[in-house]
């Protein structure tokens, strides 16, 4: 028998509701609102209750893509990252660090946002870092 629950935070609004996500036999299930959570106290809105649904969407990207003349084609991580790194460094060297811009994300974790701005500032040397928070 394989059933487990993992405590995590709703991915949607900034209210920060707490939920257990159940995994039954490897499949992600409907959230269980966490009763001991001081912000949400065992309640969720409809978005929280449906937070697991988009995860299993058929539209999920599962492979890196590169654009070719005839649209996107799947590629390997190695090739995709190589292209990203080569092109970004090339632009920086040719046009200076401020020819690049980086968007962090209000949907990503603190750690990811920290790393993204560190990448922009420490590796590429630009403060062109922002996200859609104002929006």
């Amino acid at each position: 028998m394989d059933y487990r629950t993992v405590l995590t935070t709703c991915p949607y609004c900034g209210s920060g509701c707490g939920m257990y996500l159940p995994v039954l036999n490897g499949k992600l299930g409907e959230p269980i609102p966490a009763k001991t959570h001081p912000l949400s106290q065992g309640r969720l809105c409809i978005k929280g209750w449906s937070a697991h649904e988009h995860v299993a969407s058929h539209d999920r990207l599962t492979k890196p893509l590169v654009k070719t003349g005839s649209g996107f084609k799947e590629t390997t991580w190695d090739e995709a990252l190589d292209l990203v790194v080569t092109r970004l460094l090339e632009l920086r060297d040719r046009h200076g660090p401020d020819s690049l811009a980086f968007l962090v994300s209000a949907k990503c974790t603190n750690e990811e946002n920290y790393l993204q701005q560190k990448l922009a500032r420490a590796v590429f040397g630009t403060n062109n870092v922002d996200h859609c928070a104002r929006l």
Binding site: A106, N113, A133
Partner: peptide, 17 residues
């Protein structure tokens, strides 16, 4: 009230110019 789940964090983490 900040809109998305981690707008606050994105700002706190230096995700600003």
């Amino acid at each position: 009230l900040r809109g998305q789940n981690n707008v606050q964090g994105a700002c706190d983490m230096g995700g600003l110019p």
